[in-house]
């Protein structure tokens, strides 16, 4: 009996755009929210809890008609430090990058320290990022308090 090799996409392929792959399970929704694409007309295909050889389970996001700049993608590294960004043109991967944790992140999280000045003044929060083993530590540049990522809430 002849075997027939077929490629089955777990999520529909896109012609032109960006695929964010290898997102840790549960982080996909946070990335979508951060991208602020849920309210836009952009066509987005998402997959949650997809099987993965490397991660066992993963989330995946495909954004049609938008190519992410490296800097823009790195902002998402806080949620998915090992994710890959694939830029797609005519159904082919034109560029593949691993996300890199940026040195700092602005306006994404509120400082958990309620006595931090960022809660009283019209200013944008800013944290310095430091990868510590499997955790990402964030230090508020204003109050200098250090937090683990899971202690922070998005604005």
């Amino acid at each position: 009996m002849n075997s027939i090799k077929t490629t089955v996409h777990q999520v529909e392929a896109i012609c032109h755009g960006t695929v964010i792959d290898h997102i840790p399970v549960g982080q996909g929704l946070k990335i979508l929210k951060n991208l602020q694409l849920l309210e836009s007309k952009t066509r987005i295909t998402v997959g949650f809890n997809l099987p993965s050889k490397i991660m066992q389970l993963k989330d995946l996001i495909k954004i049609e008609s938008r190519l992410f700049a490296k800097k823009e993608a790195d902002k998402l590294a806080i949620f998915a430090p090992n994710a890959t960004i694939n830029l797609i043109q005519h159904y082919k991967i034109m560029q593949k990058d691993k996300m890199k944790l940026p040195d700092s992140i602005e306006g994404l999280f509120a400082c958990p320290n309620l006595n931090c000045i960022t809660h009283d003044e019209a200013i944008v929060s800013k944290f310095k990022l430091l990868q510590q083993k499997e955790n990402t530590a964030l230090t508020c540049i204003y109050c200098e308090r250090r937090f683990l990522q899971n202690m922070l809430k998005m604005i």
Binding site: C111, N115, C116, I117, T118, D120, I123, I141, Y142, C143
Partner: peptide, 10 residues
Amino acid sequence: RHPKEGSAYL
């Protein structure tokens, strides 16, 4: 001197 942390940096 200010009661809020981070006030001097601001």
